[in-house]
């Protein structure tokens, strides 16, 4: 009797464990550097080949990559305007974290990427959208940096969230990364 009870208990615990982690990947994209953004996007798109659900959380400097260079926003205050000028305007403008050398390093890397058939960051966002990768944008850092929703790229799976959403997703993810 006792053993049967124990088995039942174990079975329910295993079922709980199975439900607690899904085949899901959560990445906090904190960096606004080209190299780190590339790494994040390659892992994110690659994970879809493993049928994983993918949630990206863009926060702080990472927001630069989500700015749409073609979109203009009015009504910003002075500090927000300054931030807007200082921050790279979109995935085509972000720079390398090392060896940028006033833009020469970044330009060299981009031409190498083209030569070696590595997709550009811009193309990777497009692919990610086709593959159902979700992009969650940190509302608080948008507010801090004065970035408005009207200047964010058009992306099919875009959400504006807070830390709670990240934690809920990360809790049930088998892989969690901070880039």
């Amino acid at each position: 009797m006792d053993i049967e009870k124990k088995i039942k208990e174990l079975e329910s615990q295993i079922a709980e464990l199975k439900e607690s982690t899904k085949d899901k990947l959560s990445i906090v994209v904190f960096s606004g550097d080209l190299d780190k953004l590339l790494a994040a996007m390659i892992i994110a798109t690659g994970a879809t080949a493993y049928d994983m659900e993918v949630d990206l959380f863009f926060t702080f400097w990472g927001l630069s990559a989500l700015r749409d260079a073609k979109k203009k926003v009015k009504g910003k205050n002075f500090i927000s305007k300054m931030f807007g000028i200082m921050l790279p305007k979109g995935s085509k403008k972000v720079k390398l974290s090392k060896m940028n050398m006033a833009g020469i390093g970044t330009a060299m890397l981009k031409s190498l990427m083209k030569k070696k058939n590595v997709a550009s960051l811009d193309e990777m966002f497009k692919t990610a959208g086709e593959l159902g990768v979700r992009i969650n944008v940190c509302e608080m850092s948008m507010d801090l940096m004065g970035i408005k929703r009207e200047e964010i790229i058009d992306y099919p799976y875009l959400n504006y969230v807070g830390v709670g959403s990240y934690l809920s997703d990360a809790q049930e993810s088998k892989i969690q990364l901070f880039i």
């Binding site: 390659i42 798109t45 690659g46 058939n117 997709a119 692919t127």
Partner: peptide, 10 residues
């Protein structure tokens, strides 16, 4: 052949 990582996998 025209793609680098993660192209072939995808």
């Amino acid at each position: 052949r025209g793609t680098a990582c993660p192209g072939p996998l995808l």
